[in-house]
């Protein structure tokens, strides 16, 4: 089995402001989806969500705030899965809750150092 990184991207502006109950329901959807991958024995690391703010360290040594919430495709989280091929790994993204917010999932094979 090879390992793959799933990166979740979405446009923050299209994300609706959610009530605590809706947030809870969304979390449950994520848990269900990740557990579905785990139930197949394909989960490596459930990963995490990422906060909306960030910093960028540049080659000149300067640190700037990342305008991440402005860009169309912000990275909002990641998960590690295992599969026999890139094709199989890509299929695991089926049903990912980010898709219902107009987002997408990028799947990349991990090239172990």
């Amino acid at each position: 089995m090879k390992e793959f990184l799933m990166v979740f991207r979405v446009d923050y502006k299209t994300m609706p402001k959610a009530s605590p109950e809706e947030m809870q329901a969304t979390t449950q959807k994520w848990m269900n989806w990740v557990a579905g991958i785990a139930a197949k024995g394909n989960l490596s690391d459930r990963g995490n969500r990422l906060m909306g703010t960030g910093k960028v360290f540049k080659s000149d040594g300067s640190i700037s705030d990342g305008p991440y919430t402005e860009i169309k495709e912000s990275i909002v989280g990641y998960t590690l899965v295992k599969a026999t091929s890139l094709e199989e790994a890509a299929k695991l993204a089926n049903g990912c809750p980010i898709l219902s917010f107009g987002g997408n999932v990028e799947i990349r094979e991990i090239n172990v150092l």
């Binding site: 269900n32 557990a35 139930a39 989960l43």
Partner: peptide, 24 residues
């Protein structure tokens, strides 16, 4: 179901996967 989800994330086993599917 939520508890089985969490359990699967800690440790996979066929029986947990089946129980989780039943709860699902």
């Amino acid at each position: 179901l939520q508890l089985y989800n969490q359990l699967l994330l800690i440790e996979y086993s066929p029986i947990t996967a089946l129980n989780r599917t039943f709860a699902f």
